[in-house]
Write a protein that binds this DNA or RNA. Structure first.
Lengths: 345, 345
DNA sequence: CCGTTCTGTGGTATCGCTACCAACCTATAG
DNA sequence: CTATAGGTTGGTAGCGATACCACAGAACGG
């Protein structure tokens, strides 16, 4: 029998409590410990009790690294977002993290900073960590990253935009449709000279799609497309304020402005407060993304409600289903969006 | 010689490309591949070139799970925050994530939702994943978690408050000092009836410390401590607005209010805008934490600047130093804070 | 010219766990 | 009472990497 023999001393100076230690003290085999912990139903009550007692006594924590190596299954999801600091992504991260936890998974997070090369490096690193699934908040990847992802066999969810040809699965809304809808909404409210402020377009297909949507709507409305009414600005309160002022100065006849990103609209609104410009009297303001803030400003701000949380939840659920054995079929979920008409327009 | 022999078929159906595969194709031993990848300086140029070529040719990604098991070193930091969704923590997460990346580490993130039992479960899970270090945004742990952390030998950084007796290392500001300083500041500006709105106190030593600081300052100012001037509110715009209104109704003589948390102050400010109450004419408003937003509202809001990003950066740096071999000595860093006087007071 | 140090390389033995198969034991039926 | 099935348990052999030691050849001094 196995007994206490084998007299292994190993180079392990008694550092880690292992499954064998628990097994020895519980008077069962290591395999039984393994089963008692990972699939309690598969061992008898008696055994399970013995194992549980020993586990508690020693405060044993199974080594998941060893477990993952042996089973060739990891329980970590990789997540790459442009910026953790942004509250929009934060909502998504939160939802993913909740679903993950409910399913015994962990989340490894990485910031791409909107840089495609960084995204590539980060995904490589996550794959080296052998994550069991990936969520990427980006759909415009570098060529090498596409190749890398095509070769891997773990499930991948892209989000942030609806790609024409998803690598694997995609959960998002259409930036084009959303921007087009909001611009159309402004047009139907009677605004004739609608400005558009966008986040940087470089390396960001979401921004570009939104601009495309804006122009498409203008065309449908029969309004002239004036490139001078479009401004590119980094995200931020001050940048939004600045953009608004510049547009009003160069185009005094502007009567509405659609801020397609981040906190630009709020910055602009505050600027109006400072200057005493009536909103929407002097100029109407519309925003992208339903920040909680927009519901409380004076006036409240018309915006697009993007179900960020749903996106996170459903992305994670898709991964979980795949891990549970669902057949790998391309999925492309459009979660839609909603126009929230408030006081600012 | 090793040759191509060994004819191993294994149960591995040829799934993963291993170091041995690379070694075979590069005509070197697996050990040389390992060294070429983890410590390039230790192999000759010739070998390194051969290895690099094979690595590139096959798009080989080393299996860090196997590496970690073998070396008993992981390269993942565990991070537990009350809520990913909160922009304050987000700044910290971002900084940690940057430092981690610069040092070849990854970040595994978990939400405790301000629940101590959850914190305990999450830390256990992270330890089972054999993270190489921990950052906890909380200092009031459950008894069992304290015991667990005392037994572990990985470095741990606590933050969010300055604990009297850190488990290992701590990087934070003092919630007590900060709240005391701001209340004192309001007193010295001449306000006599200073209200205080706090986040929930349960399971949150940070909130409790802030309230203690508020009362301590009142005492120092020689102002009466009126429990009716203290209100507990969940974080949020609406809650801040509501708290302000209630305080003004029950205490019409109130002339200032210190909102010790989240977006409460901003909600209150918007409520004043709606009601046409002059700020600080009718009532002064002060906030905790220098949200970008507070610099742009009308009026701008007096607040405490907490160097959240520094906290994250320094926490991560402490971990990294320890991992690089620094001797395990208790560290307790007070990053301080700063009062930012603006228009609202 | 030989012993010694230094550098670079390879072989072997794990790391702690799980997959797989074999063995066993109790039920149930024939 | 034996044959078959079903449910538990244990032993063995890896998972893919690294630590450690051994060794070969280059570099060096006396």
């Amino acid at each position: 029998m196995a007994g206490k023999a084998k007299g292994r001393k190993a180079r392990n100076g008694g550092g880690e409590i292992t499954m064998s230690d628990i097994a020895r003290h519980a008077g069962v085999s290591p395999m039984t410990v393994s089963r008692a912990l990972s699939d309690p139903a598969s061992v008898s009550d008696k055994m399970r009790r013995k194992v549980d007692a020993a586990v508690r006594q020693f405060g044993y924590l199974p080594n998941r690294i060893a477990g993952s190596l042996s089973s060739k299954r990891s329980n970590v999801i990789g997540l790459v977002v442009p910026s953790v600091r942004n509250s929009l992504y934060a909502a998504m991260i939160h939802a993913i993290s909740d679903v993950a936890r409910a399913n015994g998974l962990h989340v490894m997070i990485a910031n791409s900073g909107h840089r495609l090369e960084d995204e590539e490096a980060l995904v490589s690193a996550l794959l080296a960590q052998r994550v069991c699934g990936l969520v990427l908040h980006n759909t415009a990847h570098s060529k090498r990253l596409r190749e890398l992802l095509a070769r891997t066999d773990i499930p991948v969810v892209e989000t942030g935009n609806l790609p024409a040809k998803p690598i694997d699965m995609a959960v998002s809304y259409s930036n084009f449709d959303a921007a087009r809808a909001m611009t159309g909404h402004l047009g139907r409210l009677g605004y004739k000279r609608i400005g558009f402020v966008t986040l940087p377009l470089r390396d960001n297909d979401r921004s570009r799609e939104r601009r495309r949507g804006y122009f498409a709507a203008l065309k449908e409305l029969g309004l002239p497309a004036d490139p001078g009414l479009v401004l590119e600005a980094p995200g931020g309160f001050a940048e939004g304020a600045d953009a608004l002022v510049r547009l009003v100065q160069t185009h005094p006849d502007i009567d509405a402005c659609f801020f397609a990103g981040d906190v630009l609209a709020v910055g602009a609104l505050f600027e109006c407060q400072r200057r005493g410009w009536a909103v929407p009297g002097r100029i109407a303001i519309a925003s992208f993304d339903d920040l909680d803030l927009l519901r409380h400003t004076v006036p409240t701000v018309t915006t697009l409600r993007i179900p960020r949380q749903d996106i996170g939840r459903r992305s994670a659920e898709l991964l979980v289903n795949r891990l549970r054995g669902a057949s790998p079929q391309k999925v492309r979920i459009d979660v839609g969006f909603e126009i929230v008409q408030r006081e600012s327009t």
